[in-house]
């Protein structure tokens, strides 16, 4: 069942004229992806929701400046707003600290308590490793592994050369590999496949 599709360009044109319905439709279309990026960058559900809220408020106030070709998506522009806000907050409040992530708030589903604890531990270890990455490397890693964007898509979204994306992803992965290999907590846990495939 395909719903009638209205392109982002048309919605942007209406939103720029103050059409609240068009702006809400843009929000409904893109908010989940932006929230996941924000959550990957902050590690806090509440912070990610604040980031999402601020990003769309800023987008509403500046949507009149957007020139979007027919068939183009507004998501890269919205992503840049989220990224800029996350960068500002990281610099201001030093968000990239370890040990205070609250991803456990997200329900892990109906699994055994033991597996649930192991999953939370694995998530915490990975999240801490991601947190320790420099902001630009973390951003590329999050977009690659949570939004499933490839190098060219990340480059287009962030407005940087593909070579830069590939370099940041390469060095980010090297840091992650080293961090996970050195983490003594991983020794006490089953493999990740076992933790996530067994109920």
């Amino acid at each position: 069942m395909s719903e009638p599709t209205i392109g982002d360009a048309e919605l942007v044109a209406h939103a720029a004229q103050g059409d609240a319905a068009a702006f809400e439709a843009l929000y409904r279309r893109h908010h989940v992806a932006l929230f996941r990026t924000a959550l990957g960058m902050t590690g806090h559900v509440a912070s990610a929701e604040d980031l999402l809220q601020d990003a769309f408020i800023r987008a509403y106030r500046h949507v009149g400046r957007v020139q979007l070709a027919d068939g183009a998506s507004l998501r890269p522009w919205l992503h840049r707003i989220v990224v800029n806000l996350a960068r500002d907050r990281a610099a201001r409040r030093a968000m990239a600290t370890t040990g205070d992530r609250d991803l456990e708030r997200i329900d892990a589903g109906s699994i055994s308590p033991e597996r649930s604890m192991e999953r939370r531990e694995v998530n915490r270890i990975v999240a801490e490793a991601v947190d320790r990455l420099p902001f630009d490397q973390r951003l590329v890693v999050v977009l690659f592994y949570t939004q499933d964007m490839d190098v060219a898509e990340i480059a287009a979204t962030l407005g940087i050369p593909p070579g830069t994306v590939k370099s940041r992803l390469y060095y980010g992965r090297a840091r992650l590999r080293a961090a996970l290999a050195e983490d003594v907590r991983m020794v006490a846990l089953p493999s990740m496949e076992q933790v996530y495939n067994d109920g």
Partner: peptide, 8 residues
């Protein structure tokens, strides 16, 4: 990475 970031 994908399994560790599954919740995200």
């Amino acid at each position: 990475m994908r399994t560790g970031l599954a919740e995200v």
